[in-house]
Design a protein around this nucleic acid. Structure first.
Length: 368
RNA sequence: CCCGACGUAGUCUAGUCUGGCCAGGGCAGUGGACUGUAGAUCCACGAAUCGCCGGUUCAAAUCCGGCCGUCGGGACCA
């Protein structure tokens, strides 16, 4: 496979930006093995925005002959008080649930989880005491203001409610990249600030600049807080529109039952003829077509025009925009497709070993 | 440690000075109506140990005392 084919894979949707394409091109040309990483805070259930979107990119990277690694950020989750803020619980869930969930997600999107390395944060820090030197080195090259600004990446808008540990988070996130000698840092677009810091700080502390790649965030199923969306405030709007665990109806989880999936998608915000900021179309585009070819069958009664098949997103969205495709028919077929897609995940999490863990996770969510 | 402001449903908040109708409202939520989806709209509904403990009183979210917590300021800096 030549460099341009590899770049195509890397840039394939849902990639939103690549910093910087030429840097990556050079690495490919030099024939270097590229070391990829994506970090996840260990919080509640894995939703499609985490599992499938990241999973789809990992699958692409593997096809481009990149070494992939998933970083289970237990300390970061601890700092952000996830799972009741208990580090032992977080570690257990990280290895027992999160790793397994991500592995299945990668598989579902066409990747090979056996060739993905899973690294638990605590293990890395134990094995490499010099990690903390890197944290300090990174910190010495950052101002307090810079760190504060980058904190918004952690999905909070109110910057008042940050404690001191949360200020250590960004330098740690950057140090994670250096400690693992990552050349391709990957995350959702919401985490770009940390990666930009990594790229800026790298030369100052004698490290190689990592290439950074960010995928777009899957839209949540609920109506955006402001509708119609104000385009001039798009940036902040987007972060409010993304799928979120804290808005249960906005998210489908990888282990959801077919009934749950159908139910949630049926209840989704989906204005007829509107192709912008339409979560159901967004899911079809991001999870099913992915900028290429796939098959989406729409079955509908004769009185509404009979069955349809789409092979690419453009024709689907054109048909929807014209009004010939009714939202409910779209919803049903997208839901069915996702149900199909997630079958391996359900199989896995229906095993007793995992159902117990799911129950425990549920408990933690409730009691917290 | 000192001074000040604050603490009412998931969230924001009215009421506190001048004790007394079942602690009121917005948003969120739930159910229904209407659209072949959702939303919008309309109707209905659920939800609060009024930070905690004690006191005064026939009666306390409201007054008094103590404690806890959040925020701001000050002091301490040998």
């Amino acid at each position: 496979m030549d460099t341009s084919e590899k770049l195509d894979l890397v840039l394939r949707p849902p990639t939103e930006e690549l910093l910087i394409k030429d840097d990556l091109k050079r690495m490919f040309d030099e024939g270097r093995k590229i070391e990829h990483y994506i970090g996840f805070e260990i919080s509640g259930f894995i939703h499609l925005g985490t599992g499938l979107v990241a999973g789809s990119k990992i699958a692409d990277f593997q096809k481009a002959d990149i070494n992939c690694r998933v970083f289970l950020a237990d300390w970061h989750a601890w700092i952000n008080n996830k799972l009741g803020g208990d580090i032992e619980t977080i570690k257990r869930i990280a290895v027992g649930y999160f790793k397994e969930g991500m592995a299945t997600s990668i598989e579902v999107m066409g990747g090979d989880p056996k060739n993905v390395e899973f690294v638990l944060g605590s293990d890395l820090y134990e094995e490499k005491p010099e990690y903390w030197t890197t944290v300090i080195n990174v910190s010495k090259n950052l101002t307090l203001a810079r760190v504060r600004k980058s904190i918004t990446i952690m999905g909070r808008q109110k910057q008042e409610e940050v404690n001191f540990a949360q200020l250590i988070y960004p330098p740690m996130q950057v140090a994670d990249i250096f400690a693992q000698e990552i050349t391709l840092a990957h995350s959702g677009i919401d985490q770009r600030k940390a990666h930009v810091i990594a790229r800026e700080v790298a030369p100052k502390i004698g490290r190689e600049k990592p290439v950074a790649i960010h995928h777009k965030l899957l839209l949540g199923l609920t109506q955006p807080p402001i509708w119609p969306v104000e385009k001039d405030k798009l940036k902040e709007m987007l972060s409010q529109m993304k799928m979120s665990k804290s808005v249960p109806k906005s998210a489908v989880f990888i282990h959801d039952s077919p009934e749950d999936i159908m139910d949630k998608i049926k209840q989704a915000f989906c204005p007829a003829k509107n192709v912008e900021f339409n979560p159901v179309l967004d899911w079809a585009n991001t999870l099913i077509f992915r900028g290429g070819e796939a098959e989406l069958e729409i079955s509908r009664p004769e009185k509404y025009g009979g069955n349809l098949v789409f092979y690419d997103y453009e024709s689907l969205s054109r048909e929807f925009e014209s009004g010939n495709l009714h939202p409910l028919d779209l919803k049903k077929s997208v839901a069915e497709k996702i149900v199909q897609l997630l079958e391996p995940a359900r199989d896995k999490f229906n095993r007793p070993k995992y159902t117990r863990m799911l129950e425990e996770l549920m408990e933690i969510k409730i009691t917290r």
